Simulated scan of single mutants.
Amino acid sequence: MTVVRNNPLGEKDFVETLIPQRFPFVMVDKLYSYSETELVSGFTIQSDALFLENDFFLESGIIEHMAQSVALHTGYQFYLKKMQAPTGYIGSVKDIEISQLPKLHDEIITTVSILQEFGGITLVDVVTKLDDVEIAKGQMKTVLAK
């Protein structure tokens, strides 16, 4: 899947309609690409971002960005079906490795790869990059509310 960074599918205002989080807790602001099995999102770290300390975006912010990227996949999937997306929850976080913290004004790009989806439970691999260099990865399981 090719990511065209100067032509995202959705910018901040649209993206925020697809996820349950609201300012100041929003940590995705671009939707670059979508398929049934993969999504690429972006987040440019601004001075009002939660989890920003001494101009570094902390580990907890990266993990929340990853989780919101998964939520964005679900939200866009329901948007395409012209349906309201249900609320989801993180069921588990596994094997998270973070090798570098991004800084204020950096844009992180995250790829969500769907490994399995059944009965409202989704297992994904998530990889976050900064300037095309992997800085975080892991697995998440999300559960849709009934």
Rank of each mutant, 00 (worst) to 15 (best):
L9E: 05
I121H: 00
G119C: 01
V133T: 11
Y79M: 01
L104F: 04
F23N: 05
Y89S: 11
V143K: 11
R5K: 12
Q116N: 11
I114M: 06
L52Y: 05
G75E: 03
D95R: 14
M1V: 09
F25T: 10
D131V: 10
H73W: 14
P86R: 08
S41T: 11
S92M: 07
L104K: 08
I135C: 01
Y76S: 09
I62P: 07
Q84L: 15
I90V: 12
P24L: 02
K30N: 10
G91F: 04
N7W: 00
G91N: 04
D131C: 12
V124A: 14
P24T: 03
E11N: 13
T111D: 00
L104C: 06
E97L: 14
L80R: 03
L80M: 06
S47L: 12
Q21S: 10
I114Y: 04
V112C: 09
S99T: 15
Q139R: 15
G10Y: 02
S92E: 04
K12F: 06
Y89I: 13
G10F: 02
V124D: 14
T110D: 05
T17M: 07
E64L: 12
S33V: 05
L130N: 06
H73T: 07
E53N: 00
H73S: 13
T44G: 09
E11C: 09
K82H: 14
P20W: 03
D48R: 13
M27Q: 08
V28E: 05
G91E: 02
G88K: 02
I90H: 00
T111P: 08
I90L: 10
N6W: 04
I19P: 03
F118T: 07
N7A: 09
K129C: 11
E11G: 10
T111C: 12
Y34Q: 02
Q46W: 00
I62K: 04
D29Y: 05
D125G: 07
D106K: 04
H73I: 09
V126P: 14
M140T: 14
Y89Q: 10
L52F: 07
M140H: 14
L58D: 07
M83D: 14
V40M: 00
S113H: 08
S41A: 15
I109G: 08
